[in-house]
């Protein structure tokens, strides 16, 4: 599976669609329902994964509780940005028949492979994970 523009855009489209459906589903559910959990790791191991709590983080962001969102999981901010920006960027690319998002994605991939950026980011994710476990999300 060699990644090209259309493949990447369909993956992003499916991801964003699933994300929005999931957010809508969770937001309309009652808050105390314990069965609303997507995480595979948390179900099987009972340990939260690095991105556990991002749904709660995004939902509190939509309600305007910015510090609460940061305290639940800072990754919520990153996911919100991706969810908001990538569909618009994709539509812009499709209308103008360009592939700026794909080029941006490839550039980011190139930088993320460099140890200078990769190692600190891995540490940040691990620290966030430890924080998640101590918070007992």
């Amino acid at each position: 599976m060699t990644l090209n523009r259309n493949k990447l855009y369909s993956i992003i489209f499916i991801g964003c669609l699933a994300g929005y459906i999931w957010l809508y589903y969770v937001a309309t559910q009652s808050q105390t329902d314990p069965s609303v959990e997507a995480c595979f790791i948390k179900h099987t191991l009972n340990i939260p994964c690095p991105s556990c709590g991002s749904t709660r983080s995004i939902i509190s962001l939509t309600k305007g509780h910015f510090t609460e969102a940061l305290l639940i999981n800072p990754l919520g901010y990153l996911i919100t940005i991706i969810l908001l920006v990538s569909p618009l960027w994709m539509v812009y690319d499709i209308i103008t028949k360009r592939k700026t998002l794909f080029e941006f994605y490839e550039k980011m991939e190139y930088y993320l492979r460099k140890p200078v950026y990769a190692i600190p980011l891995i540490f940040i994710v691990i620290i966030n994970w430890i924080w998640n476990i101590t918070k007992e999300l």
């Binding site: 994300g19 999931w22 595979f40 690095p50 991105s51 556990c52 990153l78 996911i79």
Partner: peptide, 10 residues
């Protein structure tokens, strides 16, 4: 992408 979404919701 997989990391941020818990493996794409599993």
């Amino acid at each position: 992408g997989k990391l941020l979404t818990c493996g794409g919701f599993g």
